[in-house]
Write a protein that binds this DNA or RNA. Structure first.
Lengths: 331, 331
DNA sequence: ATTAAAAATGAGAACGTTTTCAATGGAGGA
DNA sequence: TCCTCCATTGAAAACGTTCTCATTTTTAAT
């Protein structure tokens, strides 16, 4: 039904090769020719078929943003939204389009058609694992890992200074005199989880405190879970005077639990979050947190992936975007 | 480099037609054959090429989610995130993948390759316009419009009961005795803006109040703008006792302005939002708002678009998902 | 055992481009 | 005017599938 390059060729009297060139590489064609071709194309309402083009060129100019399923729903996730946005912008700027899918699409049962081939490369975000990366590699698919650090040859991982951020947060609390500090940690990927956890432990050790396991909890990173967890922790007779929450959503939940228990923030309880999500400056009191440069993470991931697609050899590297303490009202 | 259907055919001794069937329609092939084919495929690390498949079938099993640019950044937008998520889930469930792009991709200058052809249909979200829809139609592209109502033949629009929601919100305020009610309205699409605005005016008329233009403001829907706007409105000597904000982000900004001005919520000022975004139950006090069924919007849009793709004739219709008042602590 | 019907398989065209290689035409230099 | 060279154009192969149609094999019925 839709017109093809052949229709245009017939109408303007050139061969399809020339029509193709008029669109794909106009510099190879006379100005006069180009005009005639475009005119015919307009008359026929013709647009080059991206699929046919991809077929012969062997590339689609598409990038896949793959969300690791355990982390579903991801777009809702205030941490990933800005990253995603940044990836989208960078891709658009470089002429790539963006494909979204969950890891499910990549692990279809034996033989099912797989989305893979419609992408020139993949950004693997979230709780990715080495096996998945290797599988993709076996299909010659360039991969970049986002917000995780995996031990795979020639693999680029973009993450942030998890450990440094945790140190920053904890030292901020200890500098304000806190010694009994709780930890409410989200069950993130091992990389994220352990780095932040280690930061917590190491700072406590620095000030000579032992780790009281009643003050250390791991939960699903939702505000509801955090509220529940925090109200239990805060009802202990010797409750902590500050709590380090490993993301802002958890911190918000903790904050609500504290306010409902009649505690004043920061006078009775200090709370510090992680990520500097949108929400952290929307609540009252505003949340002190560790800023992660999400825009940079997305941008770097997209840029480096595109570089790989365009021929740059991949090399094993972990890029850590810098973190920054944002002091607001909750500490 | 990567192996093709022909390699598999050679290895397992069948023709490529049979290999193709083993993957695309296994029921047309003996169990024994299927196993042999799969085995060969696994040995060769073969996956069907989605592009070649799309080429010959004339469909890609991809759906485009197109973000109308004025609304950038969209994924960050707490209103669109859950819709997007719902679309993603529905698509995955029906075997479609999701493509993201801004309207810029669709309006490339004459002749540029266009992403269009890689999608079987498009969900146009945000401030879409009739022209764009017609352009897509001319290319035989099925379209569904989300969160807008456009007057185009045979076009399905999914929106929510904007006017009803505004009535609900305003009557909730008047029932609690408020007569001087402010409006802080976001500059959304005409459909959304005027419906909500009309609801505001009509309820004021019902109770015999005239509309005081000092209490009616239109702003960019950010918390910062809202804060600024609200603090001006609240500094008027005869300030309103309640404010209807046309989305939750605006409501949060208004809330912050009120708290900073030393007003108690809801005793000194009632605030009601619109959308029931995630954030509305994370702030303290929790926000009274009008719930929009975003999951339903996304699901319906995806389902109906897919139905159209699969042959159902499109018909002109505006589907309004129901709204619901969620009374929390801010009123 | 024979035959009709049904199921499984194979051959090859088709999908709409890009690209290589060859051919053509025109400009500029002798 | 002739020749060389370069820019422009055309012919046709190639990309990796699906699907139609024809052929072969299997199944079921007599």
């Amino acid at each position: 039904m839709a017109s093809t390059i052949l229709d245009v060729a017939r109408l303007c009297g050139y061969s399809k090769a020339t029509v193709s060139r008029a669109f794909a590489s106009p510099e190879q064609v006379t100005e006069k020719t180009r005009q005639k071709v475009y005119e015919a194309a307009r008359a026929l309402n013709y647009t080059p078929d991206a699929i046919a083009r991809a077929m012969v060129r062997g590339r689609t100019d598409n990038i896949g943003f793959v969300i690791y399923e355990k982390q579903y729903p991801v777009v809702l996730n205030p941490f990933y939204s800005p990253i995603f946005e940044s990836v989208l912008q960078t891709c658009a700027h470089k002429g790539y389009s963006l494909f979204i899918s969950s890891d499910r699409d990549l692990r279809l049962p034996n033989g099912q058609t797989c989305v893979k081939k419609q992408m020139d490369g993949i950004i693997l975000a979230g709780q990715s694992d080495a096996q998945m990366v290797m599988d993709l590699r076996r299909q010659n698919m360039p991969v970049v890992v986002l917000n995780n650090a995996l031990d795979v040859d020639d693999l680029l991982c973009i993450t942030t200074d998890q450990y440094g951020g945790a140190l920053l947060a904890m030292r901020h609390l200890t500098e304000r005199g806190h010694r009994k500090i709780g930890l409410i940690a989200g069950a993130f990927s091992p990389h994220v989880y352990t780095s932040r956890y280690n930061g917590y432990c190491d700072v406590l050790r620095e000030i000579g405190e032992t780790i009281d396991l009643r003050f250390v909890q791991t939960i699903d990173p939702t505000a509801e879970q955090a509220m529940q967890c925090a109200s239990m922790m805060l009802s202990l007779p010797d409750r902590p005077t500050a709590i380090f929450c490993t993301n802002d959503t958890i911190a918000i939940g903790t904050m609500k639990a504290a306010l409902r228990a009649g505690l004043r923030i920061p006078q009775d309880l200090s709370i510090i979050g992680f990520d500097d999500s949108e929400i952290s400056h929307l609540v009252e009191p505003e949340l002190t947190t560790v800023r992660v440069d999400k825009a940079a993470m997305g941008r770097i991931a997209a840029e480096r992936l595109i570089a790989q697609i365009e021929g740059e050899p991949p090399q094993k590297q972990v890029i850590q975007t810098p973190i920054e303490l944002v002091v607001r009202q909750s500490t």
